[in-house]
Amino acid sequence: MSRPPTFVPPPCAVSRALSTSRGEFAVLDARPTARENRGTALLLPGYTGSKEDFIALLEPLAAAGYRVVAVDGRGQYETDGPADQAAYAQDGLAGDVLAQAAALGDGGPLHLVGHSLGGQIARAAVILDASPFATLTLMSSGPAEISPAQQQRVKLLSDALTVMSMEQVWQAILSFDAPEDAAGEATEGREDLRRRWLRHNPAQLLATGRQLTTEPDRVAELAAVRPLPKHVLSGERDDTWPVPLLDDMARRLDAHRTVVRGAEHSPNTDRPSETATALAGFWAQY
């Protein structure tokens, strides 16, 4: 589970609802603080995550001249979703992304970023229609299904969700936390994570968890989406998709490659300054 350093957005950002042709989505909307508006970025979070996972990126990216919109997808945290797992089919979630892009209007070049599960949804969106986007960044998001160890973790979570309440599952998650993680996490931060967890829709977690464990390799399809510039960004360690697998995916996509030193599966929270610099540097080329 991603652990953002805070759930409080910086002064440059507001929490609001983004109205689209496919419903309303909760977003954090950060406006450029630089004199020049260089474009807009749409950021999609990963499995069990939320828009708050990008909070530490908002200020440096706004200072670089970008409007940054981080979104809760359908059924994630502050965006409502139905109890029907069919509502979270990948093509439907990709359609949501295209609707969000349309709702953002003409704010200059639109850069799409997806973290982990969000990367696979972003990939599906641009395969459906790449025309709204100036670039695509896949952040710690691999070519196909997650690693066997992570598949087992998702299966355990999914099995628990079918027989336990969200509160009961949360307590089970806490019991599996490493002692050093539990000791280092402030009570306020733990309560933020609990509140977020309880507002996730279980149907969304079940459907997207299944996607992560069965996702086919769609790299060739994505590589054929041209002339869209692509960027593969990750930490230097990753237990969800091994880094050599991400290196190979970048080669297959002819993509720009960034490895953020000192980061693991969530460079957006592990090393936000370095991650923001890499994103802004890539976007500035387009």
Rank of each mutant, 00 (worst) to 15 (best):
M1K: 00
P5M: 06
V8S: 12
F25M: 06
A26Q: 05
A26N: 02
V27W: 01
D29P: 09
R31D: 14
T33Q: 13
G39R: 05
L43E: 01
S50F: 02
A64T: 12
G65T: 13
V68K: 01
V68P: 01
G73L: 13
R74G: 04
A86H: 12
A89I: 03
D91K: 04
L98D: 05
Q100E: 15
A103G: 08
L104V: 08
G108T: 10
H111I: 12
G114A: 10
H115M: 00
H115F: 10
R123N: 06
A124D: 09
S140L: 00
Q150W: 08
Q150L: 06
M164L: 15
S165Q: 07
M166G: 11
E167F: 00
I173N: 08
L174Q: 14
D177W: 13
E180M: 01
A182T: 07
L193Y: 04
L193Q: 13
A203P: 07
L205N: 06
L205W: 03
T208H: 08
T213C: 12
D217S: 07
A223T: 03
A224P: 02
A224T: 01
R226P: 00
P242N: 09
H256K: 06
N268P: 03
T269C: 15
T269M: 14
R271A: 15
T275S: 14
T275N: 05
A278D: 04
